[in-house]
């Protein structure tokens, strides 16, 4: 049994599916999360490595402040890998150097006024659970505060976007209110 941020992830669920338990994580986001931590499609929760679980937990606790993903090099067809006698630490040091050089290069480009295009990480703006609920509540409160039609309709527990109200509108009557959560 694995608990991540207070959510119980059942052992026999696929990891990709179990992640959708978080409010704000759907199948697509769960797939992205799995890709980020190299969790394959058929991986069950019980098969997750401790490293994967801790990194998942630390990422989900604050996605916005997660460290950027390193861009590891990929072997071209004629690549010859270094001999096994070369220690991995040496290779890592070399990679770190190249990363630093890249950072400098980017800084230089930015100074020239032509900043390099940054990859926009969609997971960076991920909000889950109470954070997402707060956001939704704030949005509704904002609408009400500025006195907009949307805000008023929310306050009246009625549909917001011009739907019929003579019949139906059940979901709106149930959910549309100023403090939804």
């Amino acid at each position: 049994m694995v608990h991540v941020l207070g959510k119980k992830l059942p052992d026999n669920h696929l990891a990709r599916f179990a992640l959708t338990q978080f409010y704000g994580v759907g199948p697509k986001t769960a797939h992205r999360l799995c890709a980020r931590f190299q969790i394959h499609d058929k991986c069950k929760v019980k098969d997750l490595t401790p490293f994967q679980i801790t990194s998942l937990a630390s990422f989900l606790s604050s996605p916005a402040t997660a460290p950027p993903i390193p861009r590891y090099p990929l072997a071209p067809p004629k690549f010859l890998s270094p001999a096994p006698t070369v220690p991995l630490s040496e290779l890592q040091a070399k990679f770190r150097e190249s990363q630093e050089a890249l950072v400098k290069e980017k800084a230089a480009l930015a100074e020239q006024g032509t900043p390099a295009k940054e990859w926009n990480d969609p997971l960076k703006s991920l909000r889950i659970e109470s954070e997402l609920r707060n956001q939704i509540r704030e949005n509704i409160a904002h609408q009400r505060m500025i006195g907009s039609y949307v805000g008023r309709r929310h306050a009246m527990h009625l549909p917001v976007r011009g739907q019929n109200t003579q019949t139906n509108a059940k979901t709106a009557k149930k959910l549309n209110r100023l403090d939804r959560f």
Partner: peptide, 16 residues
Amino acid sequence: INSTTTYTYDLRTQTY
């Protein structure tokens, strides 16, 4: 190739 077994990046071979 159908994402059914574990994979990890390896810096030595520069492959997964």
